[in-house]
């Protein structure tokens, strides 16, 4: 087990380098550059632009720029934004908790409602309530999050009164985060509900369930212990991966509801061609992805004794 974790942690290094390099290169090939963007529409002497770029090290070959960026990064220096002059680490530490709050809110929603719906439907497969869930999840899966977001915003404006706000002004207020969290959760929730439903319905027919009944166990124990322990294995795996997906999904949701999280920061940084900010935030998300997938794999072995890592 220890060796397995060590190996997985080591594997993270090339993945991390590769993904940051990719994002860095993509930023580089985008037309436009941060200095010109910062100057806006004003006409500036190309010589001045070139000299600023030289000061910032933007005239160097891209791989060299990447090298400088990475050596600073491992020392904990994310760099500085060109247009605002803010430390990128400040930007991140300000925006990240907001996104984290939104993501965890959505994640709780996904887990509770998704699992709940899935179990309710899976215990009675092919009944009306099962079909109802299928329809609901189909709607949620096929509706893009910006459509759902704008729809809910409109509903909140028309009928929401004071409880439901169409935009977020205070991201520590959970009642304001309710709508964006719902929109963010919708897609994952539909997947989790379907997956849970299938897993429960399938395990319901398993031989060991018949054994549990034959043992004279009460129904609550049969469902709660024998069925759930087995049905949750794929769902937990999926939920772990979804944490990462929710964080990236937050980028769209944040801009709809004006939540000042990393989503908006990364979007604005993209427009301004602030490579360092984009790569900094993106690599943080990559790290979270890697960490959650490792935790999920370890959790998988805990849930299913047939899986053993050496």
């Amino acid at each position: 087990m220890g060796r397995y974790v060590a190996r997985r942690l080591l594997q993270m290094i090339p993945v991390f380098i590769g993904s940051t390099l990719l994002i860095f290169l993509m930023m580089y090939v985008l037309p436009g550059d941060p200095v010109r963007t910062a100057m806006g529409d004003q006409q500036f002497d190309p010589a001045i632009v070139a000299s600023i770029k030289k000061d910032l090290g933007l005239d160097q070959p891209v791989l060299l720029q990447y090298w400088h960026y990475m050596t600073n990064l491992v020392q904990g220096d994310f760099g500085t934004q060109i247009s605002s002059g803010r430390e990128i680490s400040d930007v991140i530490s300000e925006a990240f908790p907001v996104t984290l709050r939104l993501t965890l809110f959505a994640f709780t929603f996904v887990t509770l409602v998704g699992l709940g719906l899935g179990i309710v439907a899976g215990l009675k497969p092919d009944t009306l309530r099962d079909r109802g869930l299928l329809l609901l999840t189909l709607v949620l899966v096929s509706m893009p999050s910006f459509v759902l977001g704008i729809l809910l915003q409109w509903v909140a404006l028309e009928y929401g009164g004071d409880t439901f706000k169409a935009t977020v002004t205070d991201s520590t207020n959970f009642s304001e985060l309710l709508l964006p969290a719902t929109v963010l959760a919708a897609l994952s929730l539909a997947y989790v509900a379907r997956l849970t439903r299938t897993s429960v319905a399938e395990n319901l027919r398993a031989d060991y369930m018949r054994t549990a009944v034959a043992k004279g166990l009460p129904r609550r124990r049969i469902i709660g212990v024998h069925l759930m322990r087995n049905s949750m294995i794929p769902v937990v795996t999926f939920l772990g991966i979804e944490i990462g997906n929710l964080m990236t999904g937050a980028i769209v949701t944040e801009s709809i509801f004006n939540v000042r999280g990393v989503g908006i920061e990364i979007y604005e940084a993209l427009l301004r061609r602030e490579g360092a900010t984009v790569v900094g935030i993106a690599s943080l998300i990559v790290l979270i992805y890697l960490a959650t997938s490792l935790i999920v794999d370890l959790l998988y072995a805990v849930l299913d004794p047939r899986i053993r890592y050496a």
Partner: peptide, 10 residues
């Protein structure tokens, strides 16, 4: 079939 009739995770 004892393998499938016993709960694999307990």
């Amino acid at each position: 079939d004892a393998l499938s009739s016993l709960n694999p995770v307990l």
